[in-house]
Amino acid sequence: MKRNTYLRTVVVVGCVCGLLISSGCRKRTPPPANVNPTEIGTGGSILSERPDAEGDRIIGAEVAFVQNVLFGYDSFQITDSEVSKIKAVSDYMKSSGGVRLICEGNCDERGTAEYNMSLGENRALAVRAYLIGLGIDGARIQTKSFGEEKPVELGHDEASWAKNRRVEFALYRK
């Protein structure tokens, strides 16, 4: 009887621990339901020549609506608040057939550089997958990770970090 109670305790405590551990985990982004994850890819080189043909980059009023997609710490989950930013770019690309896009993934300074390089790429890929899910041809979208190397804010606080955990939209006309 006593032994039984102990066993039950172990099970209960084990479950609680399990819950605590799993709630601490980073959330992963599944791609949109209509996109096969094995067919996402990085999009190949959408620009005919490297380095970036900066002259082809679309700047100014035409793309003033573009906003960076922001992420949580150590996450590449696209949150509800960011969806409208991706939709705005999708609408623009649908109305401007010749426009191509590089999703540039970035991280805050925390974490090691090598891991952040991969995390930044995953952020860019998550946005790319979302755009494909919205009907944009994947051949028009490429990804690039800067890891933690290209912060927009140089502060060492959460306000700066939050702005640095981002995907930037670099739009090109060729």
Partner: peptide
Amino acid sequence: LVLSKDGNP
């Protein structure tokens, strides 16, 4: 090395 060419690092 790490490559993401297939859609994921």
